[in-house]
Write a protein that binds this DNA or RNA. Structure first.
Lengths: 203, 203
DNA sequence: CTTGACAAATGAACAGTGTTCATTATCTTT
DNA sequence: AAAGATAATGAACACTGTTCATTTGTCAAG
């Protein structure tokens, strides 16, 4: 009975079609700048069809947010193999920033866009994000355990580093670096990352 | 000839009425969550009337953004009197964060909300923001001149500190701290601020 | 093959949006 | 009081997210 499987596959392909078009449009014009009719037109279907696959516009957003979280996890996953906690931490940070710079639209989806956050916490996306955050915090804890820092306040250390990385990326993503010439921005970001690493070494 | 003055005053009062209502509504439901009809209804005028005072919705936004920049400047202005550059810098940071925490809606307007940034640069708001940023950078420069830091890369130091402060505030403002219990968030932010100050001391 | 049943896609319709503008009402000046 | 200027209106336009009766397409049974 391969029929229902084929149907399921076709449904999945349709979802992909919708998500790909939606992401491309969101990326270009932002969530609010894109209408469902735009998405429908892009995939050459009628507006009503989309509602057969996603119950409303926000669910498309959540689906994309989940995918963004998955991409981010895959981006960060390899650092788990690094044995030394300090090296693991630095590489984690470097990849976090790198992810944000290379996928500003996904980063925006995950950490900046206003979403009904109360509803999100029950979702898979939240679990994924929490897992990553726990891994980060555990890495900091490992550094603390091995006396890499003078301070032993793991939570504050982790949070402080996150603040810097998030600030770095989100100023970039939301175009608040216009006082720096375009071609210097990336270099400045890299320098700043190296600086916070140096600062953390003597923390 | 008090008439045209009174007219001008009335026009100004009308603008105030619109901006106050708009800010209140934006604060509650966000820029996209508020319609011009909502604003019109709130001030008990017809939708068309608003267009006699602001040419479109985004101009209301820009007016509010300018006011936010002014509030922020007034918030930060007093630190100019602090003679010691290091103390001045720390107090500047403290007030910057404080402003963001106390006026999340204004901070959002200034540093997070997606706005047609290309158009903004010619506006008064941009000048105001640039002046503040220059003051910040000059303070860092003063610290560098007096050998408060080992590093002499003023630009990167200033940017790094800004990244942290902005990350701190924007994670708070956009509700990405839900993994920390509500009642601990402010304390964590304060601890993190103190930590970055300590880190900067040995920079 | 044809038929009947089910699923998928449609597009008109509803209530909302930002914005414009001819019309109406109000106030100022003669 | 009449004429002129200014302010306010609300209907209208093209858009939005969303729903749903209707049409179209697919596939198994007779």
């Amino acid at each position: 009975m391969g029929i229902i499987q084929r149907k399921e596959r076709e449904k999945e392909e349709m979802r992909r079609l919708i998500l790909d078009a939606a992401l491309r449009l969101f990326r270009e014009r932002g969530y609010d700048g894109v209408s469902l009719r735009n998405i429908a037109e892009a995939i050459e279907y009628s507006p009503g069809t989309i509602y057969l696959y996603y119950k409303d516009k926000s669910e498309i957003f959540f689906a994309l947010q989940y995918e963004a979280a998955a991409v981010k996890r895959d981006y960060l996953l390899p650092v788990a193999d690094i044995a030394d906690p300090w090296e693991r931490l630095v590489e984690f940070g470097r990849r976090y920033v790198d992810f944000g710079m290379k996928h500003p639209d996904l980063y925006d989806l995950l950490f900046i866009t206003r979403a009904p956050m109360e509803y999100i916490e029950n979702q898979e996306c939240w679990k994924l994000g929490m897992a990553t955050h726990s891994f980060f915090q555990e890495t900091v804890q490992a550094c603390v355990d091995q006396r890499y820092f003078k301070s032993t306040d793991t939570e504050t250390i982790a949070y402080t580093l996150w603040c810097h990385a998030h600030g770095l990326v989100s100023l970039f993503v939301r175009e608040r670096m216009r006082m720096y010439p375009e071609e210097h921005r990336e270099e400045l970001a890299r320098k700043s990352f190296n600086m916070i690493v140096k600062m953390a070494e003597s923390l």
